[in-house]
């Protein structure tokens, strides 16, 4: 008897926990919208924490936010779900993987697109609408005492042996970005840069989290990241210790975009969401994602002074990325 009671008690508690977590899911009779985004976007510390509630309040549309790992998984998911997908909007697709998503999306010529800096509108058909962008850059620790490098070639010098943390292009979008950057900036010698660097660098991490973690733990004073990385440290840690380096070669950018899924049953709500992203959400997005807003009229907080804006930029396409990856693998690994 005791055993039965305790089993029932456990089941009730379990049900309670699960129920409490699902309480936020949609009530019927309301306008709804389902958005798929990558993990970091969702969750309390992500942009979703501020953007979604604001959107819901302003428009009265209930957002069903579904998180899936990295941006690429979002695409995978929608593709796998096929016609049954409940997704209306996908969010967080960067330009280097855009090609893989186009066939899933329908165009939307939002009236706010004209507020976006031209350089960042990478899809003429407006299937993917950009909402923020970032530039890859090496970040360094000013307290480490090293002489900051000024261009990509500098990093291959002896003085930087074991002082640089790179990220593997095969497993991380930051790594892919770095690879594209070297290709765009260095031309034919990009592969020999990598060959030298794989020996000269301290390590090639599997992803941005581990790579940047190694950096902040002091394992090496230079790491590949974004020009906006220092903003976080200024705003939340009150330190200007970490600074982004602008290189003379120019910088690779990554542009994040959102798009409306083909066959959506909530087209009007989806459009409202995209518009919101391009207007009221811009500041929140930039802050939370540590990126720049695409809307050039937005004023950024003072901390963004520490995120230098590169003059010369490169953008890439996902086809290019795949080809380059194969070349890279052949040269470095085989």
């Amino acid at each position: 008897m005791k055993k039965v009671l305790s089993v029932i008690a456990v089941l009730i508690i379990a049900a309670g926990i699960i129920f409490a977590q699902s309480v936020n899911e949609q009530k019927s009779g309301q306008r709804t919208l389902t958005v798929y985004a990558y993990d970091t976007f969702c969750g309390d510390w992500g942009a979703a924490g501020s953007v979604i509630p604001a959107f819901e309040e302003t428009t009265g549309i209930k957002v069903n936010l579904v998180a899936s790992g990295a941006a690429v998984e979002v695409i995978n998911k929608v593709r796998l779900e096929g016609k049954n997908t409940s997704c209306d909007v996908i969010l967080g697709i960067s330009d280097d993987i855009a090609d893989k998503a186009y066939d899933l999306l329908e165009s939307y010529d939002s009236p706010y697109i004209k507020t976006i800096d031209e350089r960042y509108v990478f899809d003429a058909q407006n299937r993917l609408i950009p909402y923020d962008y970032g530039a890859f850059a090496f970040v360094y620790d000013t307290e480490s005492g090293i002489q900051p490098p000024t261009c990509l070639a500098d990093l291959t010098k002896d003085e930087y042996k074991d002082k640089v943390i790179l990220i593997d292009p095969r497993t991380s979008s930051v790594g892919t970005g770095l690879m594209m950057w070297t290709y765009n900036a260095l031309g034919d010698s990009w592969l020999s840069w990598w060959k030298t660097m794989t020996e000269n660098a301290l390590t090639t991490a599997s992803g941005w989290s581990s790579g940047y973690g190694l950096f902040t733990e002091g394992e090496a004073p230079i790491v590949i990241s974004y020009t906006t990385s220092p903003v976080y440290h200024v705003m939340w840690e009150n330190t200007t210790r970490y600074q982004a380096l602008l290189f003379s070669d120019g910088h690779e950018t990554t542009i994040e975009a959102a798009g409306i899924v083909k066959g959506t049953k909530h087209r009007a709500e989806a459009e409202a969401f995209i518009d919101f992203l391009l207007t009221e959400a811009q500041i929140d997005l930039a802050n939370a994602n540590s990126m720049y807003p695409v809307n050039s009229t937005i004023e950024l907080p003072a901390a963004y002074d520490y995120a230098p804006v590169p003059e010369r930029i490169f953008t890439g396409s996902s086809d290019q990325a795949s080809e380059l990856l194969t070349l890279w693998t052949d040269a470095i690994v085989k």
Partner: peptide
């Protein structure tokens, strides 16, 4: 510390998440 150290599972990861 070196991209040469890559396992099969890492390649699976790559094909799933990077290559789509």
């Amino acid at each position: 510390g070196n991209p040469r150290f890559f396992t099969i599972e890492a390649e699976i990861y790559k094909r799933t998440y990077t290559d789509v």
